[in-house]
């Protein structure tokens, strides 16, 4: 539209933006894609971690190759690969699915390290005590190792989810309308006064990060009361 540039958003304008449907829906996309990617990553991390811990050389090699691949290239490049290259290879994924899959597969490499460390971190003497009670290896894994490893995993996995809220901003590059893309869209239309839009985005990123930090703290305190002191 020709004419004088629109005036900057005032305080009321910024507050209205804060609760505008476009922003709220972008925040929601950021939250659920982060959680979905983290959840898928945790699930994919389990077989990867077990493969790394396995005594079978081929399994170890597969896990090593996976981590080498996904940790050796930038997440942004991986996103673009899933968005731009897979369709050329004949695999068409909906935009958001391609984005989540890329985030999740990248994160799975780190989750496998966390899960592996947690399994190794369970005191071997817990295993021995269970052995002397006649429990089978599978029972020991299921009833002793897994519950204790889950508690050891809680802090680093929580930190990963916190990172994931911010990592979703890279989805902007493949035009998924999450918080960063929405902010850039606003700023493009009002290039003279971008500050309020970025301030709103920053507010929500800080809010997600802080809120999850509080939830995580509660979960960790609860685990500690139930027999788990940080050691």
């Amino acid at each position: 539209m020709p004419g004088a540039p629109a005036p900057a958003l005032g305080l009321t304008g910024t507050l209205a933006l804060l609760v505008s449907p476009l922003v709220l829906s972008a925040v929601w996309v950021t939250i659920w894609t982060a959680i979905a990617a983290q959840a898928i990553a945790a699930l994919c991390g389990v077989p990867l971690a077990l493969a790394e811990l396995s005594s079978l050389k081929p399994l170890k090699a597969v896990a090593w190759f996976y981590n080498w691949l996904f940790q050796g290239t930038p997440l942004l490049m991986q996103l673009i690969f899933f968005w731009a290259v897979l369709p050329i290879l004949g695999l068409r994924l909906p935009l958001i699915v391609a984005g989540i899959v890329a985030l999740a597969l990248n994160e799975a490499a780190r989750m496998s390290q966390i899960i592996r460390a947690a399994i190794i971190g369970v005191d071997a003497r817990q295993f021995e005590a269970a052995r002397t009670l006649g429990m089978s290896s599978w029972q020991i894994f299921r009833l002793i190792i897994v519950p204790q490893a889950l508690r050891l995993m809680l802090p680093p996995t929580g930190n990963e989810l916190n990172y994931q809220f911010k990592a979703t901003s890279l989805l902007a590059a493949i035009s998924v309308v999450e918080l960063t893309r929405q902010t850039l869209n606003f700023a493009d239309r009002d290039p003279a006064h971008p500050l309020p839009y970025f301030a709103v985005a920053a507010f929500y990123y800080f809010a997600m990060s802080t809120a999850w930090g509080l939830v995580q703290q509660r979960l960790e305190n609860r685990a500690e009361r139930r027999g788990f002191a940080e050691s």
């Binding site: 003497r125 005590a129 002397t132 009670l133 204790q148």
Partner: peptide, 18 residues
């Protein structure tokens, strides 16, 4: 192993159980 019970120097109670 069920037939031989063991008590350890470091107790080794399962930390996640009452």
């Amino acid at each position: 192993r069920r037939e031989t019970g063991m008590v350890f120097q470091s107790f080794n109670l399962f930390a996640h159980l009452t």
